[in-house]
């Protein structure tokens, strides 16, 4: 029986492991955290259908449990990778016939954009923090009061040369729309403002959701980036921006500011390049063999990619990637 190691227990890795296992391939799934699920584990609902993130994860876990071919090892991190062997940070080595790298991405650290005061001002939070609040059904300000005016800022750590993140993180626009709707559902009387530089509604149902946010929920969209955040004397936040459609500067007091943090490549990708000979893109994401016919294969035979390791992707794309990578691995193993 062939043995494949899948590194990364997010949705792409889980999907890939399940698909391989169903093809009678023995799989070892490595996850550095204490549980599988990746970033989706912290998410509340998924756009554009508002499907609970838990539903997707439990579906994947169910699929993985259909065979006995998967061994999941949590709390372990791969350090060096070859098609025949993966070495863990503990020093343990595991032999295999192929490897799928599905280590995903890192959320941009909002502290770096100091002008927004994340970690300084209590009611400046990130989109990930907001999902955690949604999960607890407790979206409140630090003092426990209800926010009456909320600003959501797009592109924090995306399309931003100053922080060396030139790429678009792709899913933040639609996440901002989704979170704005959820906030309006929770607090219908609140004013919610989305500050954007472009609205990129690329997926099915996204544009409709954007329209619904405006027409049904009266979410405001302002084309302009927030330049800085300061405290007001009443402990609210003062934001400064330029409304680039009217060409005028804008100053607004808000109760809460949500920073839509982007997807950053993992720092670990640099060592995949240096130690394992894998190729990286300028953005730091891994470079697939090509962008069309071999987009889940690496430049090294026997090492494959799945999910957001190669570029920012939404959950559906990551799942497709997982399934595609499994097919490519199987084809490759059959040829050996």
């Amino acid at each position: 029986m062939k043995h494949v190691i899948v590194i990364g227990g997010g949705v792409a890795g889980m999907q890939c492991a399940a698909e391989l296992a169903m093809q009678d391939i023995k799989v070892t799934l490595l996850e550095k955290k204490s549980d599988t699920g990746g970033k989706v584990r912290g998410w509340h609902k998924l756009f554009p259908t508002f499907t609970p993130a838990d539903e997707v994860l439990s579906g994947l876990r169910h699929k993985m449990a259909l065979t006995q071919n998967i061994t999941t090892k949590t709390g372990c991190e791969a350090t060096t990778i070859t098609p025949q062997k993966v070495t863990l940070s503990t020093g343990e080595s595991i032999n295999c016939d192929a490897v799928v790298v599905a280590t995903g991405y890192t959320l941009f650290d909002a502290h770096i954009k100091e002008e927004y005061g994340y970690g300084i001002y209590d009611n400046v939070i990130t989109s990930a923090d907001l999902e955690e609040m949604f999960n607890k059904d407790d979206v409140r300000m630090k003092d426990g009061s209800t926010p009456r005016r909320i600003a959501i800022l797009h592109c924090v750590g995306s399309r931003d040369e100053k922080v060396c993140q030139r790429h678009c993180s792709k899913v933040c626009c639609v996440t901002g729309v989704k979170q704005a709707i959820e906030l309006k559902q929770m607090y219908p009387a609140a004013d919610v403002f989305n500050f954007y530089m472009d609205i990129r509604m690329f997926g099915p149902g996204y544009e409709e959701m954007y329209r619904e946010a405006q027409q049904k929920y009266n979410v405001h969209f302002v084309r302009g980036r927030i330049s800085e955040v300061s405290p007001n004397i009443d402990n609210r936040l003062q934001i400064k921006a330029e409304d680039t459609l009217t060409g005028r500067p804008l100053k607004m007091g808000v109760d809460m500011l949500v920073l839509l943090i982007g997807m950053k490549s993992n720092d670990h990708n640099a060592s995949l390049k240096a130690d394992c000979g894998l190729q990286c893109q300028n953005s730091g994401f891994m470079q697939p063999k090509d962008s069309f016919l071999h987009n889940t294969e690496s430049n090294i035979e026997g090492i494959f990619y799945a999910g957001a390791i190669t570029a920012p992707k939404n959950v559906a794309e990551a799942l497709n990637d997982g399934a595609t990578a499994a097919l490519r691995v199987k084809d490759w193993l059959n040829k050996q």
């Binding site: 100091e114 005061g117 300084i120 300061s230 405290p231």
Partner: peptide, 27 residues
């Protein structure tokens, strides 16, 4: 302290017993 939350003067003020005012147009 950098440019957003500079500490050069704030550090003196705090060391010498004063209290810093953070106000909307501080920067």
């Amino acid at each position: 302290g950098g440019s957003e939350f500079p500490y050069v003067l704030a550090g003196m003020v705090e060391s010498w017993g004063g209290e810093l005012v953070d106000y909307p147009e501080r920067r």
